[in-house]
């Protein structure tokens, strides 16, 4: 097999990495989440993957780090280093349009608005089931660090909201 150019090699790795999902939201890949920052390949086929952690104490990060190594190993990359970078800090703005659609389909309301224009007041959150914006915050904290609990006043369903941070 002819060696791939570095750019092609990086593309291939990025493609493989779409298999790594956020363990807490299994429909989202690390690309969708904006966790995957960069992929670098050296001449000796050593791979460095840089990821941006979401919340400081998010236990999913350790799982993601392991998953990246495992998936790449299964595709023939034995020399993989996963680097965690703090700057730029992760923000929910990094979730891709594709990721937002997936969240919605999964029953989690995607973050409303931009993280920078949070005024402290609750944003208009649309119910992922009936799309009504007549919803209310039940709790600022949900089952994982990235979610808050909402309830729809229209269809009465409770749902998770992906916090806008």
């Amino acid at each position: 097999m002819a060696p791939l150019s570095q750019a092609t090699e990086q593309e291939r790795i990025r493609e493989i990495l779409t298999m790594v999902k956020d363990p807490e939201i299994p429909v989202l890949s690390i690309q969708d989440m904006g966790i995957l920052q960069s992929v670098q390949v050296t001449a000796g086929n050593a791979v460095q993957v840089s990821i941006i952690p979401t919340y400081s104490g998010c236990p999913a990060m350790d799982v993601i780090r392991e998953e990246i190594k495992t998936v790449l190993l299964l595709h023939g990359y034995g020399d993989v280093c996963v680097k965690t970078i703090l700057s730029p800090a992760w923000s929910s703005d990094l979730i891709t349009a594709h990721g937002r659609r997936k969240l919605q389909e999964f029953g989690i309301a995607p973050p409303a608005g931009k993280s920078s224009d949070q005024t402290g007041e609750g944003p208009d959150v649309a119910c992922p089931y009936c799309q009504s914006t007549d919803t209310r915050l039940v709790s600022q904290f949900g089952s994982t660090a990235c979610k808050a609990l909402y309830k729809c006043n229209n269809c009465l369903e409770p749902f998770d909201y992906f916090k806008c941070v």
Binding site: G57, C58, P59, S139, F141, G142, S143, A145
Partner: peptide, 20 residues
């Protein structure tokens, strides 16, 4: 229950900061 989740989430954030 909601406060259980809140307190654990806040605690986890703090422990995460402490690790860094």
């Amino acid at each position: 229950l909601e406060e259980e989740l809140a307190l654990m989430n806040i605690g986890l954030d703090l422990i995460g900061q402490a690790r860094l």
